[in-house]
Simulated assay, not measured.
Amino acid sequence: MKTMAMLARAVTAAVAVCGAQALQAAQIVVGQVGPLSGLEASQGRAYGTGMQLYFNAVNKAGGVGGHTFTLVRRDDGGRPEDTVAGTKAMLAEDRPLVLAGYFGTKNITDLVASGLLEKERIALVGYRTAEVRSETPLLYNVRATLRDEVNKLTEHLATIGITRLGLFYEDGPGAPALLAAADEAAKKARASITHKAAYEGGTAKVTPAVDLFLKNPPQAIIMISSGAAAAGFIEQYRGAGGAAQLFAHSGADIEQLSKRLAEEQMQGVAIAQVTPSPYKVASRLAKEFNDLVTKTPNLEVPVSYAMMEGYIAAKVIVEAVRRQGARPTREAMAATLDAMDSYDLGGYAVGFKPNARSGSRFVELSIISGAGKIRQ
Rank of each mutant, 00 (worst) to 15 (best):
G78K: 10
V318N: 10
A334L: 05
D183G: 00
G242E: 07
E263R: 15
R361P: 01
K60V: 04
A204S: 15
K2S: 14
G242V: 02
L139G: 15
I160M: 08
V210R: 04
I108T: 11
G242L: 01
R9H: 04
Q256H: 07
I367L: 11
G202K: 03
A332F: 11
L23K: 06
I317R: 08
Y199L: 09
Y169K: 09
G48V: 12
L153S: 06
V363C: 07
T83W: 10
D211I: 07
C18W: 13
S42P: 07
Y54D: 07
F289R: 05
A240F: 00
V64C: 05
A5N: 15
E118D: 08
V125I: 01
V29I: 14
M308A: 13
L157Y: 03
V30S: 06
T83S: 12
R73I: 14
A252H: 05
S369R: 11
K315G: 03
G325P: 08
A371P: 02
H156C: 04
A204E: 14
L157I: 04
Q21M: 10
T203K: 11
A252W: 00
L97N: 07
A313I: 04
A85L: 04
Q43I: 00
M266W: 01
L99A: 03
V142F: 06
K353S: 15
T203M: 12
A181F: 06
Q245S: 14
Q245Y: 11
A16V: 08
A144K: 01
R260L: 15
S42L: 15
V350W: 07
A248N: 14
A334E: 12
Q324M: 10
P176A: 02
Y199S: 05
A46Q: 04
G161Y: 13
A57W: 02
A270L: 10
L337K: 00
A123M: 09
G241K: 03
V316K: 10
P354G: 07
L212C: 12
I28P: 01
R95P: 07
S283Y: 03
L212N: 14
F55V: 02
L165T: 02
Y199G: 14
R330V: 12
V72F: 04
G104M: 10
R322V: 11
I317Y: 09
A41Y: 13
G101T: 07
M340D: 13
A182E: 06
R330F: 13
L124S: 03
S277G: 03
A177V: 04
V206K: 08
K295T: 09
G78L: 10
D253T: 13
L257N: 09
V33P: 02
S258C: 09
I367T: 14
A371F: 05
T275H: 08
A282C: 03
K187A: 15
K353T: 13
Y237M: 05
I222Q: 00
D338S: 12
A180W: 11
F352G: 02
A209W: 01
R260E: 09
D148I: 14
M223Q: 14
H249S: 13
V64Y: 04
A228D: 07
D338I: 05
A100Y: 04
K280R: 08
R133G: 00
